[in-house]
Amino acid sequence: MLSSADWAAISLTLKLASLTTLLLLLIGTPIAWWLAYTRSKLKPAIGAVVSLPLVLPPTVLGFYMLLLMGPNGWIGQFTQALGLGTLPFTFTGLLVASVLYSMPFVVQPVQNAFEAIGPRPLEVAATLRASPLKTFFAVALPLARPGFITGAILGFAHTVGEFGVVLMIGGNIPGKTRVVSVQIFNHVEEMEYLHAHWLAGGMVVLSFLVLLALYVLNPNPRKG
């Protein structure tokens, strides 16, 4: 069955995925809002950057993060200057990587949902004396709810399933960076197929349940 190391990996994974999702909702929402409504010429460029993790192999992200977040990279120099040390091999580092890596999975559904609202409800709110802030919280957010549900579930699930980046910058530290996907990899490498089965099977079931929830809560995620 599951060893204590497996359980540690599971709880670490859930913690990582939850925090990543939370951070992505906080960071991704303004980005999605901007992308949905801006007329800036930078929109395609920013949209492309946000979507990069969709097409890039995780190893590319892992490689650059290892270089940039290391003691000689500019992010690493910055975090060291702040007294935070360097990010690779830390939970914070994984969190940063996961946020970047899962960004499009949250931003895109939310952006689609914002775009689907159209300008009219926002105009109506303005004619009803709602400040831009009230309009955002009382109109845009509730109307974009399906996009948020989709984004949160996809962001969570994608973080749980992340492997390549974690492998490259995690350092396989129990309780800190050894998440379920890495633990499964270790089990396979160590010929502990039974343990691997328990965890891998669990991932299959979890992923299915997550997607099932997505389709049940949100029969037409595209329509926002």
Binding site: V124, A126, T127, R129, A130, L143
Partner: peptide, 16 residues
């Protein structure tokens, strides 16, 4: 707009 004391009725009702 949100500081103008106006009531606006759109062609489509546009209820929330």
């Amino acid at each position: 707009t949100h500081q103008r004391a106006l009531g606006y009725v759109f062609q489509e009702a546009s209820l929330f």
